[in-house]
Simulated assay, not measured.
Amino acid sequence: MTNPHRTHKRVTIADVAREAGLSPTTVSHSLNGIGQVDPRTRQHVKDVAARLKYRPSVRAQRLRTGKSHAIALLSSMPAAVSAGESQLGFFTELAMGLARKALLSGYVLVLAPPMDQCDPLALMDIDGAILLEPAPDDPIARELEERGVPCVTVGGEPGPDNIDLQHAAAADLLLRHLLDSGARRPGLILGASGRASQRSFHERYLAMAGARGFAPAVGLAAEEEGEAGGQRAAARLLAEHPGLDALCVPIDTFASGALRAIGEAGLRVPGDLLLATRHDGVRARTCQPPLTAVDLHLDAVSHAAVQRLLRMLGHETQDAPLGLPAPALVARRSTGA
């Protein structure tokens, strides 16, 4: 009878090296994707390790290298807009793709939602970080720099360590769709944080207003107010500009709040007013009516962000393609689709 509590001798790097006829250093470099190792040698080592059922000791790796093999997803966006009440917002959806890619690359992803009560970086042992849509002079970005933690931003300022969410292209898609769907005077509701996405939407909106000849109408909401802030901003904008026949609301939490304000004003979507948001997430899909949105290709964004961070951490990995897929419009009933 097999003893269920029987322990088996753990296969070590030395065992793999002996079987492969190579030095432990070459085996270690081959398995960890570091150093200059011939691709055929690297594959030979992986084949031998698989045959011996070698499993690396994560604890030993950390002690030996001084690395945690952990990366974090961080954001200064309040949870009210980055996740919302369902906790299934933009931040969480991006995290799923990042976690998959990180694990395939030998890293675990630490999810650190925005918190006012503590400093998450003081509690984490991480090798690098991915920072989602940093604000101007973002406190988390500043602390990462002070701590010397390598960081890739997603949707931040243009630069070699930023993954571009193509804000201007997303703005043009939504605004043109609203106008092509019959809107004559669309309004815009933005977050007041000054993040790159909100600035891009504002710039493209003003340019579109000038090109199409409609008077701009822009409302602002504080991110920490979440859906209620979007609702109040929409109510004010509709009261101040009764001729509006569409709203572009890039932050989906604000968009669902705007939908409430529209209903309270006795208007119907899409019958009286068209409504569109940026992120094609759970909120956009489950609103009634479902909201027209933009597919930002978060899987590709996740892949690119992890690849870029691994490169910064010294791993031999090919960078993701420079050209991410272009944002794609997902038309729904909120704009008459």
Rank of each mutant, 00 (worst) to 15 (best):
G148S: 03
L310K: 03
P327L: 11
S200F: 00
R142L: 15
P160A: 10
G182F: 08
G97K: 01
T335D: 03
M208C: 13
L275Q: 13
S68W: 10
P78Q: 11
E85N: 09
L132G: 07
G266I: 13
Q198C: 04
L131E: 14
R204T: 15
N32Y: 01
S302G: 15
L123E: 13
F90G: 00
A169C: 02
R147Y: 01
Q43I: 08
G266M: 09
H241I: 05
H29F: 15
R176L: 12
L247Y: 02
R55H: 14
L31V: 09
Q166L: 10
S57C: 10
A122E: 15
A331Y: 02
H241D: 12
I71R: 05
V282F: 13
A79K: 13
V45Q: 10
V45P: 08
L73I: 10
A102H: 08
E224D: 13
L63Y: 04
P4R: 04
S197F: 03
L144I: 07
E225G: 02
P160Q: 06
R332I: 01
M115K: 02
F254A: 00
T286A: 03
M208K: 14
L178E: 12
A171T: 01
T253S: 06
T292F: 08
T335Y: 02
L267S: 06
E85L: 11
S30Q: 02
S82D: 06
L103Y: 00
T65G: 09
M77C: 05
A169R: 13
M96E: 04
L267G: 08
I163Q: 07
V81N: 12
A228E: 03
T277V: 14
L273Y: 09
S30Y: 01
F90P: 00
D319N: 08
A170G: 05
Y205N: 12
R260P: 03
A14D: 12
S23F: 00
S256N: 00
V152S: 03
Q87D: 13
L190P: 05
A99S: 05
D319Y: 02
G263N: 09
D272G: 02
L111I: 15
P139M: 13
Q61L: 06
P242M: 06
R232T: 11
G89P: 00
A258F: 00
G314E: 09
R308K: 10
R333V: 03
A255L: 00
A293R: 06
S105I: 00
T41I: 14
L267P: 09
A122N: 14
G219P: 08
C151S: 02
A83K: 08
